[in-house]
């Protein structure tokens, strides 16, 4: 999935720290006022503007939806798998999904299935693996 051309400026994607057993956790925020969770270290709550505290989310979550991008995007050779993942008790994040190199055809991750967040790719993308049911 590599080969992203590196645009200038700070990386806007969520930051991931190492978790237990080789997993990863998102370094996000939780709102003191409305309890909204966010995957980003933004200065205020995106829902209410309230003050936020650091909070970690993951590594486990459920796939809300998933797709495979089959068109070229600059720096990203297709196909690649994407999923919106609802981290347990945490925010919804966009993540790439580990591809099984032995699969005949790259298919979307199963919607409703369980996944585990891993450390980011070398390119800085969030990455999840499907957890066997």
């Amino acid at each position: 999935m590599g080969g992203v051309s590196a645009p200038g400026g700070p990386d806007p994607r969520p930051q991931v720290s190492p978790g237990a057993d080789g997993g990863g956790v998102v370094d996000g925020r939780r709102c003191r006022s409305c309890d909204e969770v966010s995957a980003f270290a933004w200065p205020a709550c995106p829902a209410c503007g309230g003050a936020v505290d650091p909070a970690s989310f993951g590594p486990f979550g459920t796939v809300w939806s998933a797709t495979v991008v089959r068109i070229p995007v600059p720096g990203r050779p297709p196909p690649y798998r994407l999923a919106y993942v609802d981290l347990d008790d945490g925010p919804r994040v966009l993540a790439h999904v580990v591809t099984d190199p032995t699969a005949d055809r790259v298919l979307p991750a199963p919607v409703g299935g369980r996944v585990r967040l891993l450390p980011t790719t070398d390119d800085g993308d969030l990455l999840v693996e499907v957890v066997p049911a």
């Binding site: 992203v4 645009p7 400026g9 990386d11 806007p12 994607r13 969520p14 980003f40 809300w64 939806s65 998933a66 797709t67 991008v69 068109i71 995007v73 600059p74 990203r76 690649y80 994407l82 919106y84 966009l94 993540a95 790439h96 979307p108 919607v111 800085g124 993308d125 969030l126």
Partner: peptide, 26 residues
Amino acid sequence: ITPEPTDPEGRSGLALPALYAMAAAR
């Protein structure tokens, strides 16, 4: 359209067809 690299999901390669594809898949 090239995904906007200053946007977190754009930087992650979420082309607009993929955003709508997520809605369709759901």
